[in-house]
Computed example of a mutant assay.
Amino acid sequence: MDWAEEIQYLVDVRYPAVEKIILVLDNLNTHTIASLYKAFPPEEARRIARCLEVHFTPKHGSWLNIAEIELNVMTKQCLSRRIDNIETLGSELAAWERGRNARSAKIRWHFTNTEARTKMISLYPKTVLLNV
């Protein structure tokens, strides 16, 4: 219901003049056109759905990891101090984003097998060798 109401807000309030709203969505089972039909009468759901072009991320994709890494970088580089007001915050974030884009900053988020085993050692099963 919440997702459907947010989509209705996008269509009717936020972007009422656009022909299509392109959504890139994760693969949560609640993020489907069917949710519109559960939340609204069929005519309303159909009207909203016609305004959408939906693209789903790969089920086993790592886009969320990349987004989380970028947010972490932003927090460390730009937000590691107290910012007094929303205008300054917006200005600081815009300057940080311009600089990052100008440098074509890249995220190297993948590991080699050795790095993954070291970093995620707690996820690997412990084995005990017995001399019998």
Rank of each mutant, 00 (worst) to 15 (best):
K38M: 06
V128Q: 12
E53C: 14
Y15G: 12
N29M: 03
K106L: 12
Y124F: 15
G90F: 08
A34Q: 10
K59L: 04
I107S: 14
K20Q: 10
S80H: 15
V13Y: 05
R103W: 10
V11C: 13
V73T: 09
L28G: 12
E70L: 04
F111C: 01
A39C: 06
G90L: 02
L52N: 08
D2L: 02
V18P: 11
E68P: 01
M120D: 13
L36N: 06
W96L: 03
F56N: 09
T118Y: 04
F56Y: 15
S62A: 06
T114V: 07
L52G: 05
N65P: 00
L89D: 07
E6A: 10
R81D: 13
E87P: 02
S35K: 14
I121A: 15
I48R: 10
N101E: 03
H60C: 01
L129K: 15
G61I: 00
T32A: 12
H110T: 01
A45L: 01
E115M: 02
D12P: 00
D84A: 08
L28V: 03
A4I: 02
M120A: 14
R103N: 15
R46F: 04
R46A: 12
A95I: 00
D12S: 13
K126E: 14
C78A: 11
K59A: 13
N65S: 11
N27S: 05
R47I: 03
P58C: 13
